[in-house]
Nucleic acid binder design. Structure first.
Lengths: 249, 249
DNA sequence: TATAATTGTCTATATCAATAGACAAATTTG
DNA sequence: CAAATTTGTCTATTGATATAGACAATTATA
């Protein structure tokens, strides 16, 4: 076994400040269980030594995480881990927001942020099997669990077939329930393409993230059991709060 | 439709430098097809205006991407997009490295970087259905396609059942072929958990990335058709070069 | 109740990041 | 060939990062 380095890899002049890198490391350490939940972090001096930086740099990292609601610092006592562990969002043949998070959260719901009718872009048209430029309805939604945003999604539907789905969504707060009004009792996930990137300004605002955060991005197509495409969607998940669990499709 | 802002969201004093944020934006613009491949980027002054920063800041971003092999700058002519589009790595019931990338690359192979016997950690033991601390063989591998690293994986196997798999791997360069020597003709993916984070120092070195890069991380368990766990693995993919395509499991 | 441990605040200094402007070097265009 | 376009290099200035040290404020401990 190779000896473990004291400084577990901090990159200087990388375009990412040290305090942010250390904030990431602390988040990771919490996720891995290295720093137990609701227990105290090692003291600032110890962390500074561990990561090979100045105490003040560690303080910057901690203060960012305090801002984010992950930690709470108490003078004289220590710094404590607040945050729950990452939600595990299942992706499979029948991916549904609410049922997927059952058991992990006491409360969850979808908020309809906006809706509009627009001409289908190339990729949306392809996904839905429509002509490019055909009218599609776009629903912008945010998923929340225990009061924290866990997803931000845009969904596109054929405007001719699903006229009024925006109203149904506003009323029911559920894609599944809204589709049921159009005679769709069941639908399956046909494909999912996954990527990751830094959160942009819209992500930061919608998902309540700090600059530099990472989002997981899925682009998916849902179809009826007989293979007819009904929904094209792009969802973004905050990587610090959500992991995706791929189950049998 | 809300008017599109000229500066599409740059965060200051965020712990991520402007030049790195702009480098990310350029990468994204290329991926989305906003900047056509093998064509010239807009001139530096135009980019500076577009993103609302100084020309020198744009130059820092470009020089990082030139370093990364994504762009090539030519004095007097312009700056050109080099990079191929992202590979689409399929994940499904039968996830295999080489066959998965067929058609997308002319050449691909796995390199065995290191192997060792070690006691199983909690999660490895759980995944393989062994007692914690039982001997497991760890194979560290790197996947390469057309000469560029596209994955970095650690795989764990029961040391009793698969004694010598390290030698088989070194010889064949294929997990599938190595397992065949132990009578495993077929294996299925039982579970995959997916997350994303910034690349750490090891990732940077192994995957030839620049600081600040993002990696997709999968933790997976492979089983025989009758459900016996044979491999626990953790893989890291450079998000700028690879997307994961989830297919029917 | 001292003493130690730990977070909070302040000052100072050096380096990196970002802006600004000027001009050189190479290439394309008229 | 001359002019315009575009990348490359240099100097200078400002603000954000990171390090260093000292000490205050609060809490836990002997």
């Amino acid at each position: 076994m190779v000896g473990r380095l004291a400084a577990d890899s901090i990159e200087r002049r990388s375009g990412v400040s040290l305090w942010r890198q250390i904030a990431e490391k602390i988040l990771q350490a919490i996720a891995v269980g290295d720093f137990a939940e609701s227990a105290a972090l090692p003291p600032e001096m110890a962390l500074a030594e561990r990561y090979g930086v100045n105490r003040h740099t560690v303080r910057s990292a901690i203060s960012a995480l305090v801002q984010e609601g992950v930690l709470r610092a108490e003078q004289g006592r220590g710094t404590f881990v607040l945050s729950r562990r990452r939600l595990s969002y299942p992706i499979g043949a029948r991916t549904r927001f609410s049922t997927g998070l059952q058991g992990q959260t006491s409360e969850r719901h979808i908020v309809l942020l906006a809706s509009s009718v627009e001409p289908a872009s190339q990729r949306v048209a392809e996904g839905l099997g429509l002509a490019k430029g055909a009218d599609v309805i776009r629903l912008e939604t945010r998923g929340e669990a225990d009061g924290r945003p866990v997803s931000r999604a845009a969904g596109w539907f054929d405007a001719r077939r699903f006229a009024g789905i925006d109203a149904a969504m506003a009323e029911t707060g559920s894609i599944t329930a809204s589709l049921a009004r159009f005679g769709i009792d069941d639908y399956l996930r046909q494909s999912t393409v996954l990527s990751a990137r830094h959160a942009d300004a819209a992500d930061l605002a919608d998902l309540d993230l700090q600059p530099g955060a990472i989002v997981l991005v899925t682009v998916a197509i849902n179809v009826t059991p007989d293979g007819q495409p009904i929904q094209f969607s792009e969802s973004r998940f905050p990587a610090e709060r959500v992991e995706l669990k791929l189950s049998a499709l």
